[in-house]
Structure formats: structure tokens, C-alpha cells
Amino acid sequence: MKNTAQFRTLFAAGTWKPYESLELQGEVGYTRASEMMGQILFNVSEEILAKLHDSNYDLSEAHTYSNLDSKRWDVNLSARARLAKGIHGVVSYNLVKYDDVTPYLADLSGRLDVFQVGLRWTL
């Protein structure tokens, strides 16, 4: 029996300083991951099965029970601007989105959004 796991990741990030006092950053990541079992071959003869009280064996779908397939997006956007000498304003947005395409005993699909603001004082 064969088991196959695969994952693919794409990511991109960039920093842009359009002005001396402003810096913009962005990151995007995408991951697709999957795992699956191959068909289980149950090759016991009917003659043997006939001797069993419970002879109704069937593993034809068992390989599908533990399949995994998920997609994940990671996005981060941030900006830093100089407001005065030694003082910067910082803004960022962070997203994680997980899509459980083939749930395994629990649907793990979920999402987290975080928005952050701050003032940075550099001594």
C-alpha cells in the first residue's frame, strides 16, 4: 500500500520606500498540502472467508478515511512612517486563513485577522 504526501508553497515579499520617511512592506504566502493513502488490496480467498462467522470484510474505502488536504494563506502588510525626529508610526495587518479542504476528524478551517497600530520612539 502506498502513501503520498505533497506540499507546495509560493511566497512573495517586498519592501518599498517611496520617501525617506515612509516604508511599506508586504508578504504573501500560500501553502497547499495533501496526503493520501493508496487503495488497500484485500486478497483473502472466499474459501477462507466462508469459514468465518463474520466474513463481510471490506476495506475498499478505508484508504480514504485519513486523507488530508489543506490550503493556507499568510498575508502581512505593514507601513512605517516617520512622524517626527525619532518618532515613527507603525501600522500592520496580518491574516492567516486556513482552509481544511478534506477534514480529518475535525474541520480545522479557520481565520485570524490582526490589525496593529503603534508609535515607535527611537532614542
Partner: peptide
């Protein structure tokens, strides 16, 4: 400060 908002299952996200 920051504001966080979660949706559905947090186990992965």
C-alpha cells in the same frame, strides 16, 4: 495596540 479577530477553528490559523 492591536485588535485580533478569529473565526471558526483556531487550531491551525
Amino acid at each position: 495596540g492591536h485588535g485580533a479577530q478569529e473565526k471558526d477553528n483556531p487550531a491551525r490559523a
